[in-house]
């Protein structure tokens, strides 16, 4: 019997996919989150807001899981999500995590390191999203990214 249509919201999916009690990455919920955000007209906008909030969590494991969801969705969710992540509205939230002027002095080191890694990977894989390179260059200028 086919599973009932999935009424789970993006919010409940991301909460499950980033639950600090998870012993490991919950790939089922990560995949479901990616599919759900692609199928809703405003999915990418809502997904980026939810992800930004989770990535800024002081709980390292919750933030690291959120970054894994972000990375997975950037590989699988296509253009609409790319362009939403490629906006300063979202990139600024990542900048706040790594910049000492904002959350950088309190954010876990592993989270900051992974934020910079994923941002760098997008400057290579998504050159058309020019704002990502702008943000990355600015972090370099401020010495947040080591040369």
């Amino acid at each position: 019997m086919a599973a009932p249509p999935d009424e789970e919201s993006l919010e409940s999916r991301i909460n499950k996919a980033t639950n600090p009690l998870n012993r490991e990455i919950d790939w089922d919920n990560v995949k479901a989150f990616c599919e759900l955000l692609s199928n809703e007209p405003e999915g990418p906008q809502l997904a980026t807001r939810l992800l930004a909030h989770k990535i800024q969590s002081p709980q390292e494991w919750e933030a690291m899981q959120a970054l894994t969801v972000l990375e997975t969705c950037m590989k699988n969710c296509g253009k609409r999500f790319h362009s939403e992540v490629g906006k300063f509205r979202f990139l600024n939230e990542l900048i706040k995590v790594v910049s000492p002027k904002y959350l950088g002095s309190r954010a876990p080191e592993a989270v900051k390191k992974k934020v910079l890694e994923v941002m760098y990977s997008w400057t290579v894989s998504l050159p058309e999203e020019t704002k990502i390179s702008d943000a990355y260059q600015m972090l370099k200028k401020q010495g947040i990214v080591k040369q």
């Binding site: 405003e42 300063f88 900048i95």
Partner: peptide, 15 residues
Amino acid sequence: SKIQYHDDSDEDLLE
């Protein structure tokens, strides 16, 4: 067909 709402508004880069 689904309404594709596409909003290009954005903020400035945080310095």
